[in-house]
Each structure stands twice: as C-alpha cells, then as structure tokens.
Write a protein that binds this DNA or RNA. Structure first.
Length: 786
DNA sequence: GGCTCTTTCGTTTTT
DNA sequence: CGAAAGAGCC
C-alpha cells in the first residue's frame, strides 16, 4: 500500500506511518490535516495493524465526520460502514443507547438541544417560583453546562461552585431531566464518562475494542471531552494508541469551554513522544502566509509552528482604510463586480467579518448590485417552528416529556387555553407527576375534559395508525393527524411552512433509506444493533445533526460568514472586514482576562487570514454605524503586526482608460499614487488605541446621514486622482428625475447620483417598482428613456 | 389564539 | 438602529 502514502510530503508521511503509540500532530492551516487523519486510518487497516472494528475516529462536527468517512470509502475496499466515525456527541449518544440501563437512563431517552434546554430552564424556574429578572435563565443555563463540563453533579458541588439558589435549581433540573428522560448535550458526555468510570465491564469492552483512537480538531476539546477520551483510553493502562490532530493557533472556541491546554496535558498525561508538525501549506501564497505567521508570532505559549509554501509569493495583501462601513461594503462590491466582469466566479469570493451584524450593510450593497450571495449560519432546518412542532409530536408518541407535551397540547389550537394549561401544570406539580401522567388521569371539572381527552386520543390514534408504518409514512401521518397540516394551510406564510413539512418527510425518507431499514420496518420497532427505533434515531439525528449548512456549499455565489464560521474553509479571494480596534480584536468584557482574550482574537485573525488562497483584502473603517450612532474607529492592532513587505495600501483601482479591457490582476496590482504606506508608522503607538479612549476602543459621535456621505467624492484613499476631466453630465448623462430602464428591475426614476465625477464609483439611487436600489453606473447599464 | 405594543439588548457557536 | 422576546389586549 505504498501508493497510499507515496503522494504525501515527508512530515505527513511520518505522521501516517507512526507506530502504534500516542501521538500529537500539530497540523497548521491548509497543511492537509484531514488527509493525514484519513490516510492514517486507511494505512492502519491496509497494513493489517487494525481492523475497522478496532478504530474509533472522533470529530467535532458532523461535516468533518462525513467527510472522513467519504474519503475512507474511496481509499479502502474494506467495508467501513460499521466503523465508529462520528462526533463526540454522536458517539456518546451511541454508547448511551447501547447501555441505557447501565447509564441509568430510560430506554426512550431524548436529546434536547440548546434552545430546548433554555425553554426547559425557563419553565422550571417558573415552577420553582424564581424570577427571571433576578436570575437570568441564560446565565443559569451556562452555569449548569459549565458545571457539567467540569464533571460536577449537584450532589457534590460546593457553595463556591454554585452560589445562591443555583445549587438547588441545578438539582431540580437534574431530577426533572431524569424523570422525563431528557439528556442535554453536556449530559451526553458526562453520562458516558460516568458509565465508563462506574462500569468496569462496559469500559473494558470498549477499551479493548478501540485500540486506535483518533481525534480531530483536538484544540477545540473541552475539559469534559478530554476526560471522556481518558475514560476510554486510560494512559496508565496503555492499551490504546491515541492519535490527536490539532492546531493550537486555531483554537478560537475558548469562550465556549475549549481548552487549548488539553494539548499540553495530552503530551504529559499520555507520555507522548511523537509530536509531528505539519507546516507545509498547500493553500496560500507566501505573502499571505508570512503575514499570518508574523501576526500569530505575537502570541505567547504557542507550541510553535511556521507555515511555508512553495507556491510563490503571490500578490501582496491589500489593506484598505474605508471612510465608513458603507464605503467598505461598496468597495468590496465593486471589486467583486469588476473581477466578475473580468472572468472570476462569484464563488471565488468570501466576505469575512467578526460579528453577524456587520453583514447587513454588505448585504445591502450586494443586493443593490445584483450580486448573488449566501450567508452561512442562520436558522437551521430543524429549528424552524413547524419542524419543531412535528418532532415534538413524535417525541410525545415515543416518550411524552413535559416540554414536548406542553408544546403541542394546544397546537394546533384545540381549545385548551392558557388557563386550562395552568390548571394542568399546577395539578401535575401538586401530584408530583408529569403532565402526561396528569392528563391521562384527568378529573378537574373546571377544565373541559373532552378537549384534554381529545388530545390524548389524538396521540393514541397516531400511535396506532403509525404502528407498522415506516418512518416517512409516520411523519406524513403525524403531520396530517395532528392537525398541523390543516393549521399551516390556513396561515398566510403557508407556502414555506408546507414546503418545510414536505422537506421533513423527505428527510425522514432519507434517514430511512440511509439506515437501510427493511421495507416494512415499523417506525416504532427497535432496530437491531442500534437499540433505537427509527423514530428515536431520527429524532436524535434531528438534534445532533441539525446542520444543513453544507446545503448550497457548491453554489456559485459570494460567501458571507463570520470568521468563526470560516474555519476549515478556503477561498481564492477573501475580504476581511471591520479591522477596527474594539471590534476585531473585540474589546474584552470587564472581568475577562485581557491577555487571554487578545490571544484568542489574534488566533481568530490568523484563522481569517489563512482562509485566503490568492488574494487577501483587509479593510477597516474610520467610522462605523453602530446602534443608530456613528462610532469612530481606529485600525486594529493586528494591522500593525503585518510585515510591511507583505502588504500594500489601497483598494481596487479604477480603470485609467474607460473602455479598456481590464485584466483582473493588473487592475488591482498597485497602491495609490501619492499615498505613502501609513502603516509603517503603526508599529510604535500611533495606531494603537489611545489610553484615553473608552475600553471598547470606540468613541461616539453625532449621527450622519448616509445619503450625505454618498454624495462625497470617493473618499480619502481614492482622493483627487479620481477626478476626470469630464464633468458628471458628460460622463453619464444622467441626472435626478431621469427615467431609465434596467435589464432586471425594469423602468425606474433616478433619485440621486453619488460620485458623479467618478468613472467607477458613480452610483445612482433609482426608484424601481420593486423598490429603491443603489446601482453602480459602470455595471448597471441603465438606458435613459425620454 | 394571535396580533401589536413595549422593552431590552447588542461577539463569536457545534453538538 | 433593529431583532427578539414578553406583556397586554381583543
């Protein structure tokens, strides 16, 4: 199987061919990390060192797990369909399903996601007469999750771990989850750790089985996940080889519990002798890499890595100071349009920003100029109301927990109003029963008994009807019998709702097919091996694999996302926006360790920069619209950390000669005439936030009107040299009040023209029947009509 | 039960 | 400023 490794570089090959021992692979951005991980597995199998049965591969996201499996399938002829490749949570879930009784869980336990957990907490807080004003449910939620991540049960916490009413509430929450068979994300991990720690037979079985454990994105593991690994692979027993791949420089999730320190701990705890560094980068050109290396070198306590490439210097990074966020948006829109005109694809571009709010202005400009784009992250399919409704019904059918019952008891409306529900919950509390138990034995004359009975009968009828049905049929039946279909048909937004319900049926069909269930499989029947009925499996998948983010991944559209969301992706051209002190790096909260926060922000910067393959454009704004005000910003400290040799100032240079054909590359290659490199002075103090400033790094100012702004000529970095000898009227011939025709938007009227004297920046506000659009005249191709 | 008004809050987020 | 959640009203 030499062909498996022959195309690897020496370090990759060294990693893949390590003997069976604990190892840490430091894999830099774009260094072929996934390739090494999958080739390692394939190599172990091909060499006969391991059978697929003996391998456990753990990732963070479902996407990574899927990709790994897909790649393995192309590399190997052995059947790996039963190999354990999955996320921490997915695999923990599998353990718990297989050993529910040993883990102290009911067979039909259900997983709840973050938002389910939050609404449960809110409801329990009401039940415990806690006021949401004094105790923020979100704070309580994160405290509970934090305690679980530290492995602490309510029975063992101290007053310091849980101040005030916290300890009591945590206990209440635990009890209620236990009673209703609910398992939150942290619980999946903690339960399986406890299962292994308390049950030697189960633990030994898996410890001996999984001789090779491989962990991806190790820098993102939290304390509990590390403990989980240790529970499976005890370093003292040394029965397993743990192969961890990660990059401490790309650890950007400390805020949600990730512990980079796990990498050093792993080396120590597992006596790791083999640390392999993958530093050859196959993604970016060297100006980009050198700059990223230089920035990250300002962090302390790194394991130490320096990316290099043999792909040549490439183009310098361009750093652009925009007057404000609108100009930033306009500028990148313009560059995209010009590049597209010159042959680039929409999909070549990614726009990255620190926070989601920044996307708005950018979207406005892209939309106004008909640039197709897609925003990563947003409402996920299984988070949609109508989809949650159906899954709640399915849950009630399988195991009627309070949350699900309360969600659907009067939805669609069946005359069980707030008052009745309050009586029911009160009675349940009084009798210490679940809602379902309470209503199953209901005798309060103040609540219309027929309606409650009707609900129970509806659920029972659905159970009966679905017995013997497969999953997709079951979903369809539930959608109809619950009344959800009729209900949503009557809604004004029925099209999307019904479409989503159909989509859910398709998902059920897909699950059914994917899991190769027999044609006549009953959705309620337990599936051999998985110990889960198709419904339970489907529900678990809905919670654990809710990401439909890869949907539309291959689309040829501009990609907009936060820097966090960009991790692991790459793009030919990257626009990195909003490099202002206080925004990126984000100003630390008070109470937060400022140095730690800065280091994490710098890693985030490193991640952002290393997404770019060929062109990296960084911009910052002197002014930014924030919460209805204008804020003055200063350039991010990270800009001053980029070596002078690797960047150039400026933004897309307009065509010098109107009408000449513009090579994409040549049109942007230079800086601006007469503009010196102002960042060369940034290394001392001039670009750092001044001490007098507020901690956020922002100063507030008066509100300005955008329309005023747009009328100004190009802004300082474009400046005087943009002035053409031709006046506005002779350049475009258009003025406010003119009637024009646009290819897509039809007839319209010019409201105003911004930058009329500029060839490339002249922009018209035009009122079309579909609304007002801002169009760059170079591209809009407006035809004047009389 | 659903609409509208008011209040609140504002970093990043997978499972 | 604008989204979202909660309260209050019909």
């Amino acid at each position: 199987m030499t062909d498996l490794v022959s195309s690897l570089n020496p370090m990759q090959r060294a990693a893949v061919e390590l003997p069976a021992q604990n190892a840490l692979i430091l894999a830099g951005a774009g260094s072929g990390k996934t390739r090494v991980l999958t080739t390692r597995i394939a190599w172990l199998i091909a060499q006969g060192y391991a059978s697929p049965y003996e391998i456990l591969a753990v990732t963070f996201t479902n996407k990574a797990a899927k990709e790994m499996r897909a790649r393995l399938e192309t590399m190997l002829t052995v059947d790996i369909s039963r190999m354990w490749v999955g996320t921490f949570h997915g695999i923990a879930h599998k353990f718990l399903r297989l050993h529910a009784a040993d883990a102290g869980l009911p067979k039909t336990f259900q997983i709840i996601d973050q938002s389910d957990q939050l609404s449960l907490i809110k409801r329990l807080m009401k039940e415990a007469n806690m006021n949401a004003e004094k105790d923020d449910p979100k704070v309580i939620q994160s405290m509970i999750n934090d305690l679980k991540e530290r492995g602490l049960r309510s029975s063992v916490i101290t007053a310091q771990d849980a101040p005030g009413t916290m300890a009591g509430f945590y206990r209440f929450y635990e009890q209620r989850c236990q009673r209703d068979g609910l398992v939150d994300f942290a619980e999946l991990l903690l339960r399986s750790v406890e299962l292994f720690e308390n049950n030697a037979i189960v633990r030994d079985h898996y410890t001996e089985r999984f001789r090779f454990i491989l962990v991806d994105e190790f820098q993102d593991t939290n304390a509990l996940q590390y403990r989980w690994i240790k529970a499976l692979a005890n370093p003292r027993e040394a029965k397993n080889s743990v192969f961890c791949v990660g990059d401490d420089d790309q650890s950007i999730y400390a805020f949600r519990g990730a512990r980079v320190g796990n990498m050093q701990d792993f080396v120590k705890d597992y006596g790791v002798r083999s640390i392999v560094k993958l530093e050859q980068n196959y993604r970016s050109t060297s100006h980009i890499l050198d700059a990223a290396n230089a920035v990250i070198s300002n962090n302390k306590d790194r394991l130490g890595k320096n990316l290099w490439t043999d792909r040549g210097a490439g183009e310098r990074i361009r750093i652009y100071e925009a007057d404000d966020d609108r100009q930033e948006a306009r500028s990148l829109t313009q560059e995209i349009l010009i590049a597209k005109r010159d042959g680039a694809k929409w999909g070549d571009f990614a726009v990255l920003y620190r926070n989601n709010a920044q996307s708005r202005v950018i979207e406005q400009y892209l939309t106004a100029n008909s640039v197709p784009y897609r925003i990563y992250g947003g409402l996920r399919f299984f988070d949609r109301q109508e989809v949650k409704d159906v899954t709640a019904y399915l849950r009630v059918m399988v195991s009627p927990d309070d949350t699900s019952v309360l969600r659907v008891i009067n939805h669609p409306p069946r005359g069980i109003g707030a008052t009745s529900v309050a009586r029911i919950t009160d009675a349940a509390k009084e009798r210490a029963l679940s809602i379902w138990e309470t209503i199953s034995d209901w005798n309060d004359p103040n609540v219309t008994i027929g309606r409650v009975k009707g609900f129970i009968e509806c659920i029972e009828a659905m159970r009966e009807a679905c017995a013997g049905m497969n999953l997709a049929q079951t979903v369809r039946t539930v959608v109809e019998m619950s009344g959800l279909k009729a209900y949503y048909e009557a809604q004004k937004d029925k099209d999307i709702r019904l479409e989503n319900l159909t989509e859910l049926e398709n998902a059920a069909q897909g699950y059914y097919t994917e899991n190769d269930l027999e044609e006549d499989a009953d959705a309620f029947a337990v599936v051999e091996g998985g110990e889960m009925s198709p419904i339970e499996g489907f529900l678990a998948q809905a919670v654990l694999e809710a990401d439909d983010k890869n949907e539309g991944e291959g689309l040829d559209v501009v990609q907009l996302m936060t820097v966090h969301a960009s991790k692991g992706l790459e793009f030919p051209v990257v626009f990195l926006c909003g490099l202002e002190q206080g925004l990126f790096p984000h100003a630390p909260r008070n109470g937060e360790d400022a140095d730690k926060a800065e280091s994490e922000e710098r890693r985030l910067m490193y991640v952002a920069m290393t997404r770019a393959k060929k062109k990296l454009r960084i911009s910052w704004c002197g002014q930014r619209h924030l919460w209805g005000n204008i804020q003055w910003g200063e350039p991010s400290m990270f800009l001053a950390e980029i070596p002078e040799k690797d960047w150039v100032e400026g933004r897309p240079k307009k065509s010098e000669q109107p009408g000449s054909s513009l090579g994409y590359r040549s049109s942007f290659s230079g800086g601006y005439s007469g503009s010196g490199k102002s960042f060369s002075g940034a290394k001392d103090s001039s670009f750092r936030a001044s001490p007098a400033q507020s901690s956020s790094g922002w100063r507030q100012g008066a509100v300005g009107k955008a329309s005023d702004y747009l009328k100004e000529s190009g802004g300082r970095s474009s400046g005087a040299h943009q002035k053409k000898s031709l006046g506005a009227s002779s350049l475009w011939g258009l003025k406010p009040g003119d009637r024009v025709v646009h290819k897509k938007f039809g007839q319209g009227e010019i409201l105003s023209i911004a930058n009329p004297e500029s060839q490339d920046e002249a922009q018209a506000r035009v009122k079309f029947s579909i609304g007002v659009k801002e169009l760059l005249l170079v591209f809009a191709n407006l035809q004047k009509i009389s």
